[in-house]
Nucleic acid binder design. Structure first.
Lengths: 144, 144
DNA sequence: CTTGATGCAAAGTGTTTGCAACTTA
DNA sequence: TAAGTTGCAAACACTTTGCATCAAG
């Protein structure tokens, strides 16, 4: 199933369960978010959504973003520059990030072994992990 | 050497090298930050610094915090609630954090093995790590 | 006595909210 | 047509900045 159809299906199911409505604005924002295909900020999403429908407001983007996050269509990332960034979550494996502090480039990686060590660390502390965030900041290959 | 003396030494050396001045406000804020002994926000630091010297302003706390961070007396942490948190850095080993999403408790831990895996992952990507942040969110022992 | 530091209030950021008008189910 | 949704602008929370005055070196 194509990404957008899949995301729309999940989102509309989520909305229905909560007795919320699938408006044209929500549909537009969802599509733009999925098509963005990478990491984007709320501001960027507003910008591209406005291109598809110029009447869409900042408020609606923020409100929709909260719903997309809650429905797990998107995942929120915080790279510590005081701005939140989103990426498609659905059907993707968990991964962590390298963040270049020079050019801002984000590289994803997966490392099952690290996850296992986190779990065993959690066991030691009798802590129940719900989610985690690992970010490695530094210089990428081109900026190195 | 006691913590405060050590921190003052490092901070005054840093200021001197940069031709900056060690004012009474900076000294007060530094002391309060070290005595705070744990994780604290800028707002909290302002509050406790005002108790020691009621004339200290918000602007000076933020400006001093930037210098304490730059001089590596303090380390900045971002727990993703839109607020930055600081902790003493000097003479401490690097460590990561568990963050309880119910009570807000922060538990520190060290795991050399995880760090090594990060390094080898970085090598794969030809990425040069400068610093990193690992946060495990979930429920602590008491909130479990 | 020169240069940097301070307090204040105003200005910035990114995000959220109150409200009257408008859509969706 | 009832309930949720929208755009707008104002409100927010946290942080930064301009400026006249003050103090460290």
């Amino acid at each position: 199933m194509p990404l957008i159809a899949e995301a729309e299906k999940r989102f509309s199911k989520f909305l229905e369960e909560k007795d919320l409505k699938l408006t044209s604005q929500r549909r537009t924002i969802l599509r733009q978010a999925i098509e963005a295909n990478g990491h984007f900020s709320a501001e960027k999403l507003l910008e591209i959504s406005k291109k598809a429908d110029s009447t869409i407001s900042k408020a609606t983007v923020y409100r929709t973003l909260a719903l997309l996050k809650e429905s797990k269509v998107l995942e929120e990332q915080d790279f510590g520059d005081g701005r939140k960034v989103y990426e498609r979550a659905e059907g993707r494996k968990h991964h962590d990030h390298f963040v270049c502090i020079k050019c801002g480039k984000i590289i994803e990686f997966e490392n099952e072994h690290i996850e296992k060590l986190q779990d065993s660390e959690a066991k030691k502390q009798q802590f129940k992990i719900v989610y985690h965030s690992l970010k490695l900041f530094g210089f990428c290959k081109s900026c190195g």
